[in-house]
Design a protein around this nucleic acid. Sequence first.
DNA 1: GATAAGGGGACCGCAACGGTCCTGTTTCGT
DNA 2: ACGAAACAGGACCGTTGCGGTCCCCTTATC
Lengths: 159, 159
Amino acid sequence: MLRLSKLTDYAVVVMVRLGRGEAVQTSPCIAAATGVPEPTVAKVLKILSAAGLVASHRGARGGYRLVRPLDAVPIADIIAAIDGPIALTACVDGGTSCEAQGLCPMRGRWDPVNRAIEAALAGITLADMADPGPTFAAPGEAAALGPRALPLSALHVAE
Amino acid sequence: MLRLSKLTDYAVVVMVRLGRGEAVQTSPCIAAATGVPEPTVAKVLKILSAAGLVASHRGARGGYRLVRPLDAVPIADIIAAIDGPIALTACVDGGTSCEAQGLCPMRGRWDPVNRAIEAALAGITLADMADPGPTFAAPGEAAALGPRALPLSALHVAE
DNA sequence: GATAAGGGGACCGCAACGGTCCTGTTTCGT
DNA sequence: ACGAAACAGGACCGTTGCGGTCCCCTTATC
Ligand code: FES
Ligand code: FES
């Protein structure tokens, strides 16, 4: 399905949330605001922090803040941070994983495809996905609607 | 990793192989020619046949043949056939799978991303991946050979 | 009628992913 | 100085989907 991991989706939600309100926010706070379970939020933030997309401050009154503004973060960065480098096949550009590269007819064959996708993903920033206008009309109580396990959604950037 | 299934990779190899030699070829023949195990080739061909990308002829002296020439088959079709419709997230355009669509702030957020990828994938045909002649002259970076034990490769369109 | 080939499944092992939890370590507030 | 708050980092499983194989049936040629 060419689908990306659910964590990536969460990461987008979390990042967008970080773009609102206080500059520095804690993971429990974000979890409460977004409706995403707290451990998962923490995990996502750790990964994002390791990738340098967010900065962390430890200790009491600590939290996370954005390093770059939302409009300077292409989703390609998020995907790369969570799902690893963008590579459709095992044999990526360098092809460091294959043995007989000189003989394999598929060598580098997927590269243009990878490039195209990478370009497409680099052209869209989080700001584009955040809220391009006043269309965001359902604050707060949206989270209350998900008493059950919230299957795949739970993507609420509640205010 | 945004990776696509191995089957898709096989499918490309098989399709390219179908573009060579005899117009109609049997799956054992293709398996022998490509080095891909026969059952897998058969599986791939069944899927491709169901998707209408190849035509099959049953009975003795049967086999498969291409419906469209290679340059008329964008890889998007292959991916769609094997991995299913191209959709990065669970909530696709229509969002038929989600319950509280009206409240979810991510509704349709990924759509532009999907479109971009779809467009990128539609712009490259199998012919582009087959063997565009001697044009594939990778510069100096021939990459150091990694003596591996053929992890995922075996993608040989042997002649 | 025998044989060669595709059609459509069922089946199982494995690896990756999602999700949770626990045990440090750091910093701020009192 | 002490304790609480919050991040860091990993360990830990259940589940899922995928890759791969096999079997039996139908179809068409010889
Ligand atoms: S998660 Fe499905 S519409 Fe939001
Ligand atoms: S499969 Fe790796 S270079 Fe061909």
